[in-house]
Design a protein around this nucleic acid. Structure first.
Length: 642
RNA sequence: GGACCGGUAGCUCAGUUGGAUAGAGCAUCAGCCUUCUAAGCUGAGGGUCAUUGGUUCGAAUCCAAUCCGGUUCACCA
């Protein structure tokens, strides 16, 4: 029986209960059972017991009352598994089981010094996580931070679950947007650089993007004003035709007063006007020059992108983002052409009369999708197919995770489907980690309205706030200047990351500037503080593993902490399969909270007996380790003091 | 209009393959520092789980319909 007990200790308590219950049921009723035949839950605090088996689902098959089954099962369990169960009670069809103190104590003794508690051994599988994926025309904003924190954390959670992970980033370094910044720089900069102005490179380039947009807005406004007066002389050909149609539609709608449609028509007219400006024509021309490799354009492009990368690197370093592989669209945008040919041969794609190439996804409930234009140039999705294949060929990855906003749900669905149809290896293991937008309490972030929260600004603000709080509390006056700087950063970034990671990724979330800089309650600093307090005790009192801890029964609050600690490996696994760091964040908060309740009620240093003291020191040590490990997987450091 | 996602306390969010009287944090109110760090702890108030119907021993959870919000449906990326 002793070896059986240790066998149970190697799996989660829920699994142990499931296993023992299926065995007992099979023996009692002479028929096979599986763990799906009944539910195992944690017992609610108002009842006696630790874990609960729900009887109702067994009633029909066994033709017995819930209480009758519960009685037989409970009796059998405590007889057959006396090391696991010490008692049971049945209330209204719920069989509440009390787990033996020895189980929890054994868990503690086996793991309190294990820094790798909850981590899995290497499983030989490789996964790529692509995240961040910025454009090179402006600095990172709050939305990027959610992306980066999520991607980084999911990558680390995969590592902790035994996977080999390649973190990758696809940089959107080419296209009309960067040409806009380049044009404005030529026009306004007078040769200024980030070095001569002292402005961080990505912000520097972003400022010229804004300047371009201002020019564009001014020029298009002139056109719009003329259009309003009925003067369409700036337009010719198909644009003129489209504009005339829009004007007719607008006059009709004016009569019926459909505000929504009127707004939509105005937006279309505005887009036409914007497309018809001289500055836009210059940007398009510059993109053509770039594609044809015009030396001075390439030179400027390289220079300005270089400034942006310098800026990004500073931000990445501050927030702790790192990449094993960076892809550049300027290198990958032609990928996928060969695949289009192969797709044609495999008859996955079809060529239309005008020579454009399509895939028909109507059978899957989607649309027809173009994969190559009639002039032979590729579209967005083509390069994504190409890159997906290249990732596989270079790294032989078993799974490919894309951290991309939920506005691309449709695109990613199409990409995955196409890859599957092309017979690409592991296409079914393409996973779109789709996340919701970050909105402000005042509404959405809109770059045109200047309501975008800049990543560097918000990070600086969080660090400044943590400094202010720390100084007010005055607990670390003996820290050196460097130590203080580290601490402010750890706490400020911890608050920021925890705030963005504690929410289910797929949900749109609201960023509340006041609440996010709160360091109390369900926050990163709360968890950090719990860790720091434990470490403070452990610096004074060392745990002694030699002492036998079985002498005294566990107190309620001691056991509560152990019950939560036991759930860490399961939570870590769940966070991986669900691609969801918020599960970890919620868990860590709950662990810290449970520990704090215990900590306030029972003294560790002045425990009732030497055994109790050792038990509590081990308990505190294991909690601190788990908090530290879990927070690390969220990208958050935990200070020794704060 | 089609597809997808969401709607839980004043606010921000949890809620596991359906389980016991739906939970946290913030905010509000009332307590706790001579005692291991009060960035903490304890308690109180606060709910038509968008609405309606269905499935069953049991529904915030599953199904259907409706309402509201978001995203998307480019030979843009």
């Amino acid at each position: 029986m002793h070896s059986l007990f240790h066998y149970f200790c190697s799996m989660s308590i829920v699994s142990s209960v499931q296993k023992s219950v299926t065995e007992s049921l099979a023996q009692l009723f002479n028929q096979p059972f599986t763990e799906k035949d009944f539910q195992v839950n944690q017992t609610k605090p108002e009842f006696t017991g630790d874990y609960t088996v729900v009887m109702f689902s067994l009633v029909k098959a066994l033709r017995l009352s819930p209480d009758a089954i519960g009685n037989q099962l409970g009796e059998k369990l405590i007889t057959d598994f006396p090391k696991l169960y010490t008692g049971y009670n049945i209330i209204k069809g719920f069989l509440n089981l009390s787990i033996a103190d020895d189980y929890w104590i054994s868990l503690l003794q086996d793991n309190f010094e294990q820094t790798a508690y909850g981590q899995q051994a290497p499983n030989g599988k490789k996964v790529m996580v692509e995240y961040a994926s910025p454009n090179t025309n402006k600095p990172l904003h709050l939305g990027h931070l959610r992306n980066i924190f999520l991607g980084w954390s999911v990558a680390e959670i995969y590592k902790a679950n035994g996977y080999e992970v390649v973190k990758s980033c696809i940089v959107n370094d080419r296209g009309i947007h960067i040409c806009k910044s380049m044009l404005a720089w030529q026009k306004y900069a007078n040769g200024a650089t980030p070095q001569t102005t002292g402005i961080k490179g990505d912000h520097f380039v972003g400022d010229y993007y804004v300047k371009f947009e201002e020019d564009l807005k001014a020029e298009s406004q002139v056109l719009i004003n003329k259009i309003k007066l009925g003067d369409l002389c700036d337009f010719t050909g198909p644009e003129l035709e489209k504009l005339e149609l829009l004007m007719v539609a607008l006059t009709k709608l004016d009569e019926v007063k459909d505000e929504e449609k009127i707004t939509k028509l105005h937006a279309e007219i505005r887009e036409l006007a914007r497309a018809n400006t001289s500055v836009m024509a210059a940007a398009k021309q510059m993109l053509l020059d770039w594609e044809s490799g015009k030396p001075e354009v390439i030179e400027l492009w390289k220079t300005m992108n270089g400034w942006v990368y310098e800026g990004f690197d500073v931000t990445y370093k501050t927030i702790g983002a790192d990449f094993d592989k960076t892809y550049y669209e300027s290198n990958t945008y032609l990928l996928g052409k060969d695949i289009v040919q192969q797709g044609l041969e495999k008859q996955v794609f079809v060529k239309k009369e005008d020579a454009s190439i399509w895939i028909d996804l109507t059978a899957e409930g989607l649309d027809e999708k173009i994969v190559q234009r009639k002039d032979g140039t590729s579209v967005y999705i083509t390069q994504d197919i190409g890159l997906a294949l290249q990732k596989y060929e270079q790294y032989k990855i078993d799974e490919s995770i894309y951290v991309i906003g939920n506005e691309q749900n449709y695109h990613m669905k199409v990409l995955r489907l196409i890859c599957e149809k092309l017979g690409m290896p592991n296409a079914k293991n393409i996973y779109h980690l789709s996340y919701g937008m970050v909105e402000l309490t005042t509404g959405k972030m809109k770059s045109r309205e200047g309501t975008v929260v800049d990543a560097d600004d918000i990070v600086d603000e969080m660090i400044a706030t943590s400094q202010k709080h720390t100084e007010e509390l005055g607990k670390v006056k003996d820290f050196t200047a460097d130590e203080l700087k580290d601490l402010y950063k750890t706490i400020g970034l911890g608050a920021m990351k925890f705030y963005l990671l504690r929410v289910d990724p797929k949900k749109t979330m609201v960023f509340n500037p006041e609440e996010s800089i709160d360091f109390h309650g369900f926050t990163g600093p709360f968890v950090q503080y719990t860790h720091a307090r434990i470490r403070s005790i452990l610096r004074k009192e060392a745990a002694n593993e030699q002492l036998q801890l079985t002498a005294t029964p566990l107190l309620k609050l001691e056991k509560n902490v152990l019950v939560v600690l036991e759930q860490y490996p399961t939570t870590l696994e769940q966070a991986c399969t669900d691609h969801d760091p918020s599960l970890l964040a919620n868990y860590l908060f709950s662990l810290a909270k449970t520990f704090n309740t215990f900590y306030t009620e029972h003294s560790i240093a002045k425990a009732e007996t030497p055994e109790k003291k050792q038990l509590r020191l081990q308990l505190a040590g294991m909690t601190a380790n788990t908090l530290k490990n879990g927070m690390r997987l969220l990208g958050i450091g935990v200070p020794e003091r704060m």
